[in-house]
Design a protein around this nucleic acid. Structure first.
Lengths: 205, 205
DNA sequence: CCACTTAAAGACAGGGTTGACTGTTTGTTC
DNA sequence: GAACAAACAGTCAACCCTGTCTTTAAGTGG
């Protein structure tokens, strides 16, 4: 027999790849896109350069995989936050808080780096664009569900879209100047406006 | 004589620097931050590497100067747009259109690249942060003026801030997926909501 | 007209990055 | 257990990027 194996190769592979992907994301967050070299990633992951190139033959392959990894992280983060959403009058504000947490966390930061880099890198764009679209839709759907809006009504739909764009904008602003107080004030205001306008547009909570 | 000079040195210097700065911005827009090498910039500007390093001794100096150049471009762009703002009921929508044009143009794109790069580059951050803050304030002031809001009223102030953050978010979204129709719909909706809420907050037009 | 300063050109070294390549170990399959 | 394939390790060459240095040209002021 082939005997029971001590350490299955599939397992080793998975672990190796995961370490590399996580190191890639860390580098992205700490050093930015141009500061993320394959050498640095392999060092940080504690993986030899040879092993790295075995699993990801090029930087493009590594980063593309990292993009998907980030996407799944984002999905998980989102689902988790959505699960523990309180009911009551403060629900709208809580949903906005969730969005704000999302766009001020490391996963969004990594995504932002990839996003900006992809703008001028066709290869990367091919990998990032569809994923971003998918994530965008999922975020929209989740938000609609949490807010209890009717997505077939243009008014409500566009208000949700505006909310998501606002969140993105706040996230971007945060990367360079982290003014939490300002962010909170804007979100407080937005929550009121949103409830107000959604009610007017005929939301049925 | 002292004689009248054929080509004054001051003029030559100005022209040289301007060519380099514009080439830098072009590179930033077309190639992104990591694709912007000093060599490429000098080639693109039609300036020898020696001359480039004479005017800007380091990449940091070049980019810092480019940041200021971008800032002044942004300021000019803004002032120009603000000057030709129509009166009447569509004024709010026109202001939003101006903001949208601003965040979808090349100058914003270049600024975005610098912004993201500065996040992980202390030297660059020192140059970018104050300028960005200045530009942010100017944009806010201009918007307040154009919308005719009372900036001492928290509600109106926060609505303006939200509007600017929304614009930033739309600009960011545009860099990767340019969905003009969606943008227009969101802005149409937001114009209505904004007028509505500003009226409620007591704006006196 | 001559000393002086600034502008411009281009070669060069040092450092870093990527991916190809060779060799070694470890699991898998017959 | 022997052949085979996959995983892993590390070196190396080619390349690019930055910034220093030397050299040449051009404008300026006495």
């Amino acid at each position: 027999m082939t005997t029971a194996s001590r350490t299955p190769q599939a397992e080793r592979t998975r672990a190796m790849r995961l370490r590399l992907l996580e190191a890639t994301v860390e580098c992205l967050v700490e050093r930015g896109w141009s500061g993320t070299s394959t050498t640095l990633v392999s060092q940080r992951a504690g993986v030899s350069r040879g092993a790295q190139l075995h699993h990801f033959p090029s930087k493009g392959a590594l980063v593309t995989a990292a993009v998907e990894h980030v996407a799944s992280l984002r999905g998980a983060e989102l689902a988790e936050a959505a699960a523990s959403m309180p009911d009551g009058p403060d629900r709208t504000r809580a949903v906005l808080a969730m969005l704000a947490d999302h766009v001020t966390g490391p996963v969004f930061t990594a995504a932002l780096e990839l996003w900006v880099a992809a703008r001028t890198d066709p290869t990367l764009l091919d990998a990032v664009a569809p994923l971003e679209q998918r994530m965008g839709r999922q975020l929209h759907r989740t938000t609609v569900e949490l807010l209890g809006t009717d997505d077939t009504d243009p008014a409500q739909r566009e208000l949700v879209q505006a909310t998501l764009d606002l969140a993105r904008g706040l996230g971007l602003a945060t990367t360079i100047t982290d003014d939490r107080a300002r962010r909170e004030r804007v979100l407080d205001r937005w929550a009121r406006v949103l409830d107000d306008e959604l009610a007017r547009a005929g939301r049925t909570p």
